[in-house]
Design a protein around this nucleic acid. Structure first.
Lengths: 353, 353
DNA sequence: GTGAAAGCGCTAACAC
DNA sequence: GTGTTAGCGCTTTCAC
């Protein structure tokens, strides 16, 4: 097929051997030394207005782009951050992707790019990109309480930031939503409305079994708040299928006929859950008050709109990158940054019947 | 907080100034020239078994990792691929992420890493990473019929592969599911079962308005197959909310009381759609046969399990990387690779009433 | 089969 | 305020 078009492509050939424009070319064109070009570009020393403009004009005229490898080799900085996303079973992908997008966007604002690492290379993948100096620093997502990547991170000769945090966070920089208080605030909100028996419908059990930080801590907050407020707190994981929701909720209502409040921390089952409650004859919120821990847009898209605690993925991703940049510049950053939960009451919760 | 632990960290200090191990160190340790080490590692010339083993032993003993920037600078190859994912409204993120995962995994198999680019830098982001030699090649996802990135790709001094394909694909390498035939096969399957009036419930209208390739081509295949088979084909976009599904389907059933077959190409509304049909008193498949164009696991997770045409994201992502690697090695690759649709009948379709 | 040495394109002392 | 130059760590001729 490509042969058919050969005759239409002479214009690309005419450009001749496309030699790459180097800093030396720019220097020659502007009549200055290569280092001067470098300094104009980096702003690392003061340059006379006249020189600066001549150089900038030459850069534009020649279409100069600094070679990333040469720059990295000479400056010992690749200007690339690693983003480690293990796509584990049970995790809700859109939320992870919201973190990722935020990380990329923020990184670009600080003139960095993002290298994507997934799980299947294991912890040694972190060593590889770090020790080969492919990246300057790492953002690590979806951290488990006893994460095998954590000891690796500790030994790495470069800064890293965790989104989420492990049991043993000493010496690490961690950023997360305060899930303990998120769980607690849900209990408080429902208890304030007079509910005395509240269930937490959680993530798939695999997520708890891995001791994933956020699920674990939400549970802890839920449990202790229920105790503190003297209400019954029921906890159950839930798989991401319609049947699982049907069965889990059915059993919940059977065993706890006095249940009037639910907290769901499992985005993909929110739709099915509302459907199941309807089928089982429980109106939301008249018979059952429902809260979600999820992104605001998800909560608002439901019928009725759900009272929720938001997951501020954008802010967390941004904060992660900004902490990393600060560390790269030699600044101290807090070992732990917890974003306070933000609860928005909507139509899915009301006073207990 | 970090001060509290100062006393516990002497072991890290004791290691002294952690100088980086270079190829010269390895050469010295093994008693050979640096170039020999390089050749042992690259396999680009034959080395005596004895020398090879001494070098490999030294590499292990010193924990040597080649510096990526130095290697890239000298060899003119960064061994990094760019993955361009514009996260546009209406796209189903888990599917995109499945492509991305497959790209990363395959890239690693060919000893490459993946740099993540999102939309917000625009087409100039492609120029930036290409012209700075940050990457060797690009994988571009979510291609529109008239995509502004396409002219940029044509002028770039490096290979690229599109997942999806634009209206004017000349000179480009494109890989995709054959969505035209996917749409047609759905119509054929339903028509073979005796259905005479079939609706396509599509993606949000924004996706069509952008002229996104896959949605556009599915529609074309659906339309021409309906014509060819002499059945009524009804087409409607659908937003990703429960209300939209309720309204769209309600209207569809009102206006086309003879409708007995539906094709849905919009993953997030599959659950709500089944719910809506139930509410409106249509049993699946007895009253309404339903087909989906979606990942197999999504189809199998529904109740009833859905007859579907699969989106082979893993294979497509893998093929994209393999084509790119081939191009990097100077091989010719097909301008267009279309994966044939694979239709699996399940419980959601049966003979027309 | 192996070594010596010339770059790759840039940054950052060090000069003046 | 600007120029000179010595590397950064590796690959790859060229020479033997």
């Amino acid at each position: 097929m490509s042969k058919r078009f050969d005759l239409q492509l002479p214009s690309r050939r005419q450009e001749g051997p496309t030699t790459v424009v180097t800093i030396a070319d720019v220097a020659r064109h502007a009549g200055v030394a290569p280092s001067t070009v470098s300094y104009v570009l980096s702003g690392k020393r003061s340059i006379s207005g006249d020189t600066r403009e001549r150089v900038q004009a030459s850069v534009r005229a020649l279409g100069y782009r600094p070679n990333a490898s040469a720059r990295a080799l000479a400056s010992n900085r690749s200007n690339v951050l690693a983003l480690v996303i293990p796509l584990r079973t049970g995790m809700h992908v859109p939320v992870l992707m919201q973190f990722a997008t935020s990380v990329v966007t923020t990184a670009r604002r600080y003139d960095h790019d993002v290298l994507l690492l997934t799980a299947d290379e294991g912890p040694s993948g972190l060593e590889r990109v770090a020790q080969s100096a492919l990246v300057d620093a790492l953002v690590v997502m979806d951290v488990e309480l006893h994460d095998e990547r954590v000891p690796v991170l500790r030994e790495l000769p470069m800064p890293s930031v965790l989104i989420g945090f492990p049991a043993e966070a000493e010496g690490l920089t961690c950023i997360d939503l305060d899930f303990v208080n998120a769980g607690a605030e849900c209990v408080d909100h429902l208890t304030d409305l007079g509910h005395r028996s509240i269930a937490l419908l959680g993530t798939p059990s695999a997520v708890y079994e891995r001791q994933t930080g956020f699920a674990h801590r939400t549970l802890a907050g839920f449990r202790s708040a229920a105790e503190r407020r003297g209400v019954t707190g029921i906890e159950t994981p839930c798989e991401n299928t319609f049947e699982a929701v049907l069965e889990t909720v059915g059993q919940l209502l059977d065993e706890h006929p006095d249940l009037t409040g639910m907290v769901v921390q499992n985005e993909p089952i929110i739709g099915p859950l509302l459907d199941v409650l309807r089928r089982l004859g429980r109106r939301v919120p008249e018979d059952m008050s429902l809260m979600a821990i999820c992104a605001d847009d998800v909560a608002e898209r439901q019928v009725p709109q759900l009272s929720s605690v938001a997951i501020p993925a954008d802010e967390i991703g941004q904060q992660a990158v900004e902490s990393l940049i600060a560390k790269l510049e030699g600044h101290e950053v807090p070992a732990l940054t917890l974003f306070p939960p933000r609860l928005t009451p909507r139509a899915s919760t009301c006073a207990a019947p």
